[in-house]
């Protein structure tokens, strides 16, 4: 059991008692072993806070709706990617940093619940315990090796520890890794026609549910060009060229601003490897514009600035 959870709950209880505080966004236990986003407004609710591998890791985007039309302070629970996502929203001027109270907590990786369910049965609880996970499923407790059941995006996470928090609890569980670009490289190595066929096969499954956009901390435009009916940049038609336009636009729009939280890919109901598009752009940004870590929000983003001596490899 996580030793810092009680301290965290005490802290949130105090925070919610302070004047001018609107909400604390964290997780509470859901059904079937899930941990779902919780919006706490009263101090006594703090005892319901939980954080385990079943928590999805997409809290940051809720700040937009919660902050709209109010002026109070917002507390947010943040693991590494959630903290980066919050920085993203702050850099994009979607919420003032002063309004946020970012509470950092260690990340033990986010569980691929479908995979856990497929091998262990109906889930009741997923807990992290040191470097292992304890999973209660199908009436039994299992000691599980996280690397087997972790979301793909978490396996090479560069920032498991939350940065730029107001306060943090606990100690790092995962050590930072370097992003693995081998899938990107493998795709690049294919002949153009095969690469095209690969992407079209992915895009053809796209339902245009916009979950990848809705969950993305870098997709915070008030009006999205993809929603426009006039001019219909995307339109409503479901055709291969339109699907490609959607994914091309989405990826390029977040290029240089993506924090690699991987939520876009995680939420996709039809398994489109959306993050592979983001990662390609990030790696190119790193290479072309000499950016050290393309996923950490900077003062000015790579595509919002230039150097006179930038490359001209397209000549």
């Amino acid at each position: 059991m996580t030793a810092w959870l009680d301290a965290l709950r005490d802290h949130v209880r105090e925070f919610l008692s302070e004047p001018g505080v609107d909400v604390f966004i964290g997780y509470r236990a859901g059904r079937r072993g899930r941990e779902v986003p919780a919006f706490l407004t009263r101090p006594e609710q703090a005892s319901g806070l939980v954080l385990g591998p079943a928590a999805s890791g997409a809290l940051a985007k809720y700040v937009l709706e919660e902050a709209a039309g109010t002026t109070g302070r917002l507390g947010v629970l943040a693991r590494g990617c959630e903290a980066l996502s919050l920085q993203r929203l702050v850099r994009d001027l979607r919420v003032e940093r002063e309004r946020l109270h970012v509470v950092g907590v260690p990340c033990a990786g986010v569980a691929d619940l479908a995979k856990l369910e497929a091998s262990l049965g109906a889930l009741e609880k997923v807990e992290s315990c040191g470097e292992r996970w304890l999973v209660t499923a199908g009436g039994n407790r299992h000691d599980v090796d996280p690397s087997q059941f972790m979301e793909e995006r978490c396996r090479d996470c560069a920032s498991p520890w939350p940065q730029q928090c107001n306060i943090s609890f606990g100690q790092a569980v995962m050590s930072p890794a370097s992003p693995d670009y081998s899938t990107v490289a493998a795709l690049e190595a294919l002949p153009a026609d095969e690469r095209y066929a690969f992407w079209i096969r992915q895009f053809e499954r796209c339902l245009r549910c916009f979950a990848c956009r809705q969950v993305c901390p870098a997709c915070s435009c008030v009006e999205c060009s993809l929603d426009l009916v006039d001019p219909p940049w995307l339109g409503r038609e479901i055709t291969v060229p339109a699907q490609a336009m959607f994914h091309y636009t989405r990826a390029l729009h977040v290029a240089g601003r993506c924090v690699d939280c991987g939520q876009c890919q995680k939420v996709c109901p039809v398994g489109i490897p959306v993050a592979l598009l983001n990662r390609k752009l990030a790696r190119d940004i790193q290479e072309l514009f000499d950016v050290q870590n393309p996923f950490v929000p900077g003062e000015i983003e790579p595509l919002g600035k230039f150097r006179a001596e930038d490359r001209e490899e397209f000549m």
Binding site: A192, D193, Y196, Y248, L277, P302, A308, E313, F314, M315
Partner: peptide
């Protein structure tokens, strides 16, 4: 400075189109 921003954008977009499987040489910047 408009073309400096464009240069960065199309450095990236050229590579990205190729990544999606468009043959190199369909997009030129001059």
């Amino acid at each position: 400075t408009g073309n400096y921003y464009a240069r960065r954008r199309f450095l990236l977009a050229t590579r990205f189109l190729e990544y999606l499987g468009i043959e190199p040489g369909r997009l030129w910047v001059r």
